[in-house]
Structures are given as C-alpha cells and as structure tokens.
Simulated assay, not measured.
Amino acid sequence: MNFHVSVALLQLAEDRLARHRARRQWLRPVMQRAAVAIILKVFDGELHVLMIRRAERAGDPWSGQMAFPGGRLEAKDANGFACACRETEEEIGFSLGSEDACLGRLSELNARARRLARGLAITPFVFRVDRDVPVAPNHEVAEVVWVPLEFLLDPDNRSSMRWKRGRMMLDMPCYVFGGRRIWGLSLKMLDELMDLIEGRNPRRPDWRRY
C-alpha cells in the first residue's frame, strides 16, 4: 500500500466515522464503564493502528491479550473520552492532545468478566495522530505494536482459533500478526472500523456473546 492510498483510507475513516451512529449498550446506566483509544497513524507508506499486548497478570481476565490502551472510568474522569486519554497516557506514556483529532467512536461492547455481574460497557474512541508517538509502557503493558491496516484488510490473513469456555470449545475468528493473536473484543472493534472504511454493512460472523 503506498502513501497516497493510506492517506485515502484514513480520510475514508474520518468521513465515515463522522456520520457513524455508534450503538450503545441499553443497560449502560447500571453497567460499569470503560473506554479505549484506537490510534491511527500513517508511516512507512502504510496506515497503522496502535495495539498493546497486555502483561501477564494473575486475576486479569485479559492477561497477555492484544488490546487497545484503555481501562475503566474513574471518579476523576469527566466522561469516556477523558478516560481513554488518561488510560493511554498511563499505559503507554503518550498524551493525546488537541492536535490529535478524535474521529469519532465505535459501538459500545459488553465485556462480561465473571466478577462483573452487570457487565462492562466499553466505548472505543478512534484518533488520528500525525506526529511522532513516543511510548513508555507501564507495568500493565508487555509491548506496543503497530499493526498495518492492510494486513487486517486482507481476507487471506484472517483465520480461526479454538477457544475454551467452561466445557465448550468454540471456533473464533482471529488474526495472527508477528506471532501475536488478535481476537475477541479487540477484533470486534477492528471489524467495525474496517467495515466503515470499506463501506460494508457491519459484519455478523460467528461471534458468541462473552
């Protein structure tokens, strides 16, 4: 993918997110809340999305998984947007500022960790960053990874995995990039973003609710 195509993809994302009507969890008033930042940047002639690999931690239901910077709303957060910016700075040491455009939000997802009886409504915010992104990951982050969107848009790179939940074994869609598996809630967010960019109706693959 050359630079001009990457910029065009980014412009499509910006235009379509501006018109996108993101879905919200209808039980959100009684749910716990969280937010993540999906950061897009063009470099080396390609459009990339920033992801993190979470550190291995006991008790963390998403331990070691590929994800986006983010976390739960705290009392000091004015809203989900503020939460996404704060968590990004805390987790990877990068401060999203006024020069970094927020292109919009994607649909809220419900993360159903066992200890969250009411669920956790996660709001993804999409940012465009045109400047350098120096990072200094904290103890929650094993590494920061830039994933080319071209890799994700290529259907030949999409595969499946076996996921065990209790006594059930489920086939789940995924990507494997540089030995790192991208799946679950992060992939659902990416799928919605890619559908917007490519002008498709939202994908409804073989997702099961968590």
Rank of each mutant, 00 (worst) to 15 (best):
Q11Y: 04
F81T: 11
P148D: 07
E108H: 12
V144R: 07
R72M: 12
W146S: 06
P29E: 10
R115F: 09
V135M: 10
R204W: 12
P205A: 04
P173K: 05
P155G: 14
D206Y: 04
M172D: 12
A8R: 15
M172G: 07
G178L: 03
A142H: 10
R180Q: 05
P205I: 00
I39L: 15
W146Y: 11
P61I: 01
K76G: 10
A8Q: 12
I122H: 04
L12I: 03
L152M: 07
K188Y: 10
V129M: 06
L50S: 12
L27P: 07
V144M: 03
L196C: 02
Q32F: 07
V36D: 11
V49P: 03
W207Q: 04
R112Y: 11
V176A: 12
M31A: 00
L50M: 11
M189D: 02
L185G: 06
L109G: 08
V176F: 05
S98T: 13
K76W: 07
T123H: 01
G119V: 06
W146F: 09
W26D: 15
R203F: 05
V145W: 01
T123K: 06
A82L: 10
L40M: 10
W163F: 15
H48Q: 03
M194S: 00
A18T: 08
G104Q: 00
N201I: 02
V147G: 08
V145D: 09
R105L: 03
D60N: 14
L120Q: 12
G179K: 06
E150G: 03
G59M: 02
Q65D: 15
L103A: 13
I38D: 01
G166V: 04
A67K: 01
